[in-house]
């Protein structure tokens, strides 16, 4: 059952000039959250920020009833939200959407670009629980864009690429030498980030002949399947990213990457 709740902001931690962690105290027991699911957060009453904004759960502390979101300031909504203070409340609808398929065994590659790392702590936890090995590959324009590496390294190796070469290997995520490993050690790829990056990663998964799941960030008005605004073209026609996704196996998308 979806919940609508007022939550108190317990902490906002800025990680660089654009990105922050939002931590919320939830009034009731947190239900089971699957990695990739999201919440719709209502940000005050500004006429400028009329609609809610969707954010994936980075992490959840069930015992202490805390939800954590990784948020990048990209527009009015994320700016207003970052300007709120501990003690103020925001209203959230959650949990929404589907989730990453977590295999029973194997060794997976998790690729995050920019704010695309948002769902990956919960995913790391779930994979670790199942005993699935994982490697994170994080990409950014510069070293200052590479965040939370100490958190991710609790679950697996962390590889890095930056476009300016200031951290890790120079280039885009798909330029990383891990993709030249022979034999390729991974059984599945998860990706989240800008669409061109996800498409490039999906193309890699085709070359390696392994499944790839991506988490899409389409604009949403509602987040629970009634507005039909966030659609993506799939092999089954236009589907709502909020209810049929946000996670899609790339073979369902019409990205034509395997041609």
């Amino acid at each position: 059952m979806k919940r609508i709740q007022d939550c108190t902001i317990s902490k906002i931690t800025w990680l660089n000039t654009d990105s922050y962690l939002l931590e919320l105290d939830v009034p009731d027991e947190i239900p089971v959250l699957a990695p990739g699911q999201f919440a719709e957060i209502r940000i005050g009453n500004s006429p400028d920020v009329f609609l809610r904004r969707p954010f994936s759960f980075l992490d959840a502390d069930v015992e202490n009833r805390k939800l954590v979101f990784f948020i990048k300031r990209i527009g009015k909504g994320t700016r207003h939200l970052g300007e709120l203070h501990p003690g103020e409340t925001v209203n959230i609808i959650y949990p929404l959407g589907n989730h990453f398929q977590v295999p029973e065994k194997g060794n997976v590659l998790i690729v995050g670009g920019g704010s695309g790392i948002a769902p990956f702590i919960l995913l790391g936890k779930e994979l670790q629980k199942k005993g699935v090995g994982m490697t994170f590959l994080l990409g950014g324009k510069a070293g200052s864009d590479i965040l939370l590496t100490d958190r991710f390294s609790q679950y697996g190796d962390v590889l890095i690429t930056t476009e300016d070469g200031s951290k890790g290997e120079k280039g885009m995520v798909t330029d990383h030498s891990v993709f030249t490993s022979d034999p390729f050690p991974f059984t599945m790829i998860y990706a989240c980030g800008p669409e061109p990056m996800m498409k490039a990663v999906a193309r890699m998964s085709c070359l390696k002949n392994i499944p790839c799941e991506v988490s899409l960030e389409n604009l949403m008005a509602c987040g629970f399947g009634v507005c039909l605004c966030c659609i993506v073209e799939t092999t089954e026609g236009n589907l709502c990213v909020c209810t049929e996704g946000p996670v899609f196996n790339t073979n369902r998308l019409k990205w034509q990457i395997c041609a």
Binding site: L219, L228, C230, I231, N238
Partner: peptide
Amino acid sequence: GNPYPRMAETASGMLN
């Protein structure tokens, strides 16, 4: 229906 994007937030409202 129509192609994406289908929605734009506007002052105190939205376009679809």
